[in-house]
Simulated assay, not measured.
Amino acid sequence: MGQWFHDNITEPGKLPMLLALTAFVLTFLLTRTVTRLIRAGRGPFRNVTPGGVHIHHVVPGVILTVIGGFGAVGSGRHGWSAAVFAVVFGIGAGLVLDEFALIVHLADVYWTEEGRRSVEVVVLASALAMLVIAGFSPLGVDSLSADEQQDRATVISTVVLNLLLVVVVLAKGKPRMALIGVLIPFVALFGAIRLARPGSPWARRFYGGRHRARARAALRSYRHDRRWNGPRRRFQNLIGGAPDAPDAPDAPDAPGSRGDTPD
């Protein structure tokens, strides 16, 4: 265990990645803490609104991400400069992905149901980064032996096969599983074998005339969502805060409420 930790976590070439991930997670948690205090009206924190324009933290996040990214590319994987730029990049990425839902919807959906997507993306990005730090390589090339790595045909065929599996999983409407499958081929294989989610491109293309397949896919999706939606929402609320309750629909006007007189 100690040797694995030394080889995969404390290896000098992976130190910038570890620093970037740490800065990323801490920035997200600190940002969510500050925004929740602002939302509750507690503490000294306030929204930044120079000239009446609300400056979202995705703006400094983009700037820091660009600086950290270009700096990391130019400084390599070793030395103090690589560590500094990795931290800058992690901070910027944390600020950007915390408002990922705002970028997708081009609207301030931070405290709405749509805003939950930001928390999902942050958790998924953190998991993928930890897998890379732990030694998993994209598309499973790390599982090849030294002799197999010398055989270009084997490497190319392995990468192509894993890539095809990832594409199938995406077509079946399982983006989270597809992303993890890029690093862990077994996950992509498992997702490719399982039934597609209803409404996915795969289901529309191949389940159109197969009533039993459509029914099984719908039932499996319903059971999966019923089992995991509750725990997932509680976890999202724990680390990201619960969204605002949707506005109640306006009640229909009562007779005479607008000053109308009955006939």
Rank of each mutant, 00 (worst) to 15 (best):
I133C: 02
D151M: 04
L64G: 08
I184A: 01
I180Q: 01
G135D: 03
W80V: 15
I133S: 02
G52V: 11
S75I: 01
L164R: 00
V73Q: 14
K174L: 14
V96Q: 07
G173R: 02
H78L: 15
V182D: 08
G74Y: 13
F70N: 02
V132S: 08
G74I: 04
G52A: 10
L170N: 12
L95S: 07
L106F: 11
V66N: 04
G115A: 08
I180F: 15
G90H: 07
L161I: 10
S118C: 05
P138H: 06
V166T: 11
Q150I: 10
F85I: 00
S126C: 07
H56E: 06
F186Q: 03
G181R: 04
T158V: 07
V168K: 03
A82R: 02
G94I: 07
T158F: 07
L64R: 07
E148Y: 00
L170D: 10
I184C: 00
W80F: 08
A125N: 08
T154H: 01
V121F: 00
G76A: 03
V167H: 03
L179M: 09
D108Q: 04
L106Y: 09
Q149H: 07
L97N: 07
V168R: 02
G79N: 14
L95W: 08
I67R: 10
L124P: 02
G61E: 14
G68Q: 09
F136H: 15
L64V: 12
D142G: 10
V121K: 00
G76L: 09
G69P: 10
F89T: 06
L179G: 10
G90W: 03
H54S: 15
A93Q: 10
E99V: 03
L131E: 01
A82P: 05
P138R: 06
